[in-house]
Design a protein around this nucleic acid. Sequence first.
DNA 1: GATATATGCAGTCAAACACCTGCATGTCAA
DNA 2: TTGACATGCAGGTGTTTGACTGCATATATC
Lengths: 105, 105
Amino acid sequence: MKAIDKVFKALADPSRRELIDRLHAKNGQTLGELCKGLDMARQSVTQHLELLEDANLISVRRVGREKLHTFNPVPIHEIYERWIRKFERGRLDALSNFKAKLERK
Amino acid sequence: MKAIDKVFKALADPSRRELIDRLHAKNGQTLGELCKGLDMARQSVTQHLELLEDANLISVRRVGREKLHTFNPVPIHEIYERWIRKFERGRLDALSNFKAKLERK
DNA sequence: GATATATGCAGTCAAACACCTGCATGTCAA
DNA sequence: TTGACATGCAGGTGTTTGACTGCATATATC
C-alpha cells in the first residue's frame, strides 16, 4: 500500500484524529494518558496508535515501562501539498494577485 | 455520522480520490465515462459515487438517460480549514511575517 | 522479593467495505 | 416499435476494521 494511502486511511477514523489532536496539543503522552477519556479499551487505543505509527503520523519511544508518543506533521503536510492544494486554486490565485498588486506599487 | 467524518471516510479510498481527480480535471462526466480505465465493474463505481455524493463531494444531475457528475470542492476546503490548517501553523506564521514586513515599508 | 503499574500478545467477533453478477427499467434513435 | 445504450436494483462473497477479553511480560516501588 502506498504511503499516502496509509495516511488517508489512518485519518478516516474519528478516534485516530482525536489521538492526533491530543498529541498535537501535548506531545510525549503515554499510552495510559491517551486512553483517558477515550471511552474504549486500552487494546483498541493501542491498535489505533499502531496504525498511526505505520502511517508515520506518530513516532514512539520507550522510557522504562512507559511508551511515549510524538506527533509527526510531515505526512499531513504532504497530503496538503500533493492532493488538497490543487483544489484550493482559487485561494492561491488570490494570494498571487495580492503579491502582484504589491509589486506594482 | 458527522459530515466531516463522511468526508474523511470518502477520501480514504484511492479509487474515490481518483474519481474526484478526474472530475476536477473535467466536470460533468457520465457514469460510463468515469468507468473507463477504472478496472472495476460499473456497479462498484456507482457505489463509490454514491458515497462521494453522500459526503457532498460530488453532485449529480440526470439528463435524459445519462447521469452527470460534478465535483464540489467545499468539503475539502472545510477539512483544510477545520483540521489541517492548525498543523500548518509554521507556514501561516511565515505568511503573516511576510505581510507585516510589507506593512512596515 | 512482593506488589502494583504499564504495556504486549493472542484470539474472538460483528459490522462495514469493496468488490462482484444477474436482471430490470428507462431513454434515445432508426 | 424495436433495438441499442445508460443506468438502477437486489443480492452474494471474501476481507478488513474496530472493538473486545484474557493472559503474559516487563518495570518501578515498597
